[in-house]
Nucleic acid binder design. Structure first.
Lengths: 119, 119
DNA sequence: AGCATCTGCTTGGTATACTTAGCACGCATC
DNA sequence: GATGCGTGCTAAGTATACCAAGCAGATGCT
């Protein structure tokens, strides 16, 4: 394990850096996130890649947005929605519109997808 | 397990609905996502909650944004970054979608506005 | 009818995510 | 010195995510 770099090292280093910036010990973060402190230690050292739920919980405790954390973990491409790609844009906007009920969202999405598939 | 509802049923139903809308079989989706077809079947029936990587892959294959998929899975709060910016978002996205014809855009906008005015 | 192909699903197995119990060390106090 | 507390980490154990092998049914073709 001398110098061996796992795929999750960058993420772990990011989490440790943010934790230290927030002046929290592993045990304190563990209490806040309800994730065990040994596991957090292992995550920080790149031994495991945590689930999105754990990432979300850590992000909340460290007052980072979930989006930032997912970007760091490679779960979101922060350019994806803006790189001239239409795919997902309309869908995302519909989902994000709080004035629409779930049924209305479903209806709009179904119609939209129908249009996309047979132009 | 008769009628027993797992926490992931909504997500599974969402994925199945999108897959069927896209006219893909489980095996086709499995090939596209590199996820096994039995597992996808189990995910759709709410037996397991898939990781964010699997969700991202499914989203890509079904041409849904990762954000949309994560929202559906409860991994992102869709209001988190967009509260107060709902107005105009859907309309903008529809206008900007190059895959829609003018008629289709008009239709979608008409329906959308109808929903907004009388909820 | 038989055969091939496609479909969704069951079952047992493997790997990883995550926990619990506990160790070693550092520091402060008496 | 001894003791207590906080710190990060090890190692064994548990649960879940996900896979491979294969079954049963439906459909189409000869």
């Amino acid at each position: 394990m001398t110098g061996k770099k796992s795929p999750w090292n960058d993420l772990g280093e990011f989490i440790r850096a943010q934790r230290e910036l927030a002046n929290l010990s592993l045990r304190q973060l563990a209490e806040m996130t309800k994730v065990s402190n040994p596991y957090l230690s292992q995550v920080e050292r790149g031994l495991y890649k945590p689930s999105a739920e754990v990432l979300k919980s850590i992000a909340g405790a460290l007052q980072i947005s979930a989006e930032t954390m997912y970007n760091q973990a490679g779960l979101l491409d922060d350019d994806a929605g803006t790189k001239g790609h239409d795919a997902g844009r309309v869908e995302q906007a519909i989902h994000g519109d709080s004035r629409l009920s779930k049924d209305q969202k479903d209806t709009l999405l179904r119609i939209y997808r129908g249009f996309i598939e047979r132009p």
